[in-house]
Amino acid sequence: MQESLICLYTIARRETTRIFRIWVQTLVPPVITMTLYFIVFGTFIGSQLSGINGFEYMAFIAPGLIMMSIITNSYTNTVSSFFSTKFQKNIEEMLVSPTPNWVIVLGFVSGGVVRGLSVGFLVSMVSLIFIRLPLYSIVITSLFAFLTSFVFALAGMINGIFAKKFDDISIIPTFVITPLTYLGGVFYSISLLPDFWQMISKANPIIYMIDGFRYGFLGIADMSVMTGLGMLIFFAVVLFSINIYLLKKGIGIRT
């Protein structure tokens, strides 16, 4: 077990070092993008709108924007790091060693979590320039932030395992994650939607993550927070198991 922990520390350290070594590529762009969201949607457009559920529009969208950056960066980090490791063939360094598959998965995912939470923290700091954001429950906020980044890092790893070329690592973020995030209640409360669209929206898992995270800040939620947490734990277990299965089968990494 101690050997496995050393392996895990080695991969996690390598992944984390990479994030901070190329911080101009990994940390700065999402912070700039989110700052623009705060300026355009929060200050310019938000000032024209009435509040939602008793909060200023800027305060309402801030948790959603932070969560959006956590989701995108956790996913992107793992998919790009795993794919480039595969592309450069240095995944072989791990494969020829006795490193267990669960350690490889957790090692890469830890990088995604570190980047997701780092960007989330930086975006939270930026949001304070624009709005005094309340913090209703630090425990709920932290749980949702951690579990969401964990789930999306695991999803990114699956994408990285299947990816054969660089195009393959941007298809899912562009055509699946971004639309689901935008339609996941970042900019609006789903209680404002007609019944039919509320029902459709509830099939989008990201809405539970954003809603639960927002609850941690504002203390208001459209959905059950416990359902959101349960869903995150369920997705974490399923995606982790899929990753282990894929590595065991050697899909995309062994011939």
Binding site: E3, I6, R14, E93, M94, P98
Partner: peptide
Amino acid sequence: NFSIFEKVEDIVCQQAGYYG
């Protein structure tokens, strides 16, 4: 098949780490 962006000693030490 090593990462060309990493330092020589990091590449070697990391490999030891993969062996626990």
